[in-house]
Simulated assay, not measured.
Amino acid sequence: MGENIAVRVATPDDVDRLVEVHTQGRLAYYTAGGLSPEEVDSPVWRQERHTGWSRGIESAQQQVWCATLGGEVVGAAAMGLPHAPEVDDGATGQLFQIHVLPDRWGHGVGGLLHGVFLRYLAEVSRPTGFLEVWERNERARSFYARHGWRPDGTSRPGPAGSRYLNLRLAVSAGT
């Protein structure tokens, strides 16, 4: 802790670094959950991540933020209105993803990016947050629980016979 981590809106110039942060984070938590690196990463998936981050940055419906340390991107977050119509009840904003370089875990990067999401919810006047988390990603599940997220009882299929759990966060006024 005590490091000078800054958060800012991501730009198209950040996309390659966002892909790298996303890839390193995914490799760490999916392999910890029992998947092989080959099941998590490939040139095709890196290209899909590149396309996804680029679209997010260009989208008027999403916000993409990055956390930097010494000018280097060490974390990323994407948020917006929910994609799934069954989720968007007019009161919900979605945290699509937070990724932090594994060697920066525990240094406050994720917490700063989570704070950006809380500010986003206030800006768009949505009192509820929604996200999906892989059930085997114990570190992320613990992080979100510490920040007040709770399972809503729904899920969807995930890799290797697992699930993606849906979490909700009720935001109080003034958060």
Rank of each mutant, 00 (worst) to 15 (best):
P127V: 10
V21K: 08
V74M: 12
L112S: 09
D16F: 06
Q47S: 12
A84R: 14
A84S: 12
G52E: 13
F130K: 01
V87I: 06
V15L: 03
E58C: 00
A84Q: 15
E39S: 14
D16I: 04
T128S: 00
V19L: 06
F96L: 14
D88T: 00
G25M: 04
T23L: 09
E123H: 09
R26S: 08
G90V: 01
C66L: 09
L121D: 00
E48R: 12
T51I: 07
D14W: 11
G52C: 05
P85W: 05
S59P: 03
E72F: 04
S59F: 00
S36Q: 11
V64C: 05
G75S: 07
I98N: 04
F117G: 00
W65C: 11
L81E: 04
A60R: 11
L35M: 10
Q62V: 01
E86V: 13
S36R: 09
E123D: 12
C66R: 02
R104H: 11
G75V: 10
V116L: 04
F117K: 00
R126M: 03
Q63S: 15
V109Y: 13
Q94R: 08
R119F: 10
E38D: 08
E39C: 01
P102G: 07
A91P: 03
T51S: 12
E39K: 01
R26W: 08
L35P: 00
V19W: 10
E48N: 07
G71P: 03
D88R: 01
L118H: 03
A91K: 15
P127G: 07
L113W: 05
H114S: 13
A32Q: 14
S54A: 15
R104M: 12
Q24M: 14
V73Q: 05
W53G: 04
T51C: 06
G56H: 08
A28L: 07
R26I: 00
P43Y: 13
V44N: 12
G56D: 02
H107K: 14
S125P: 02
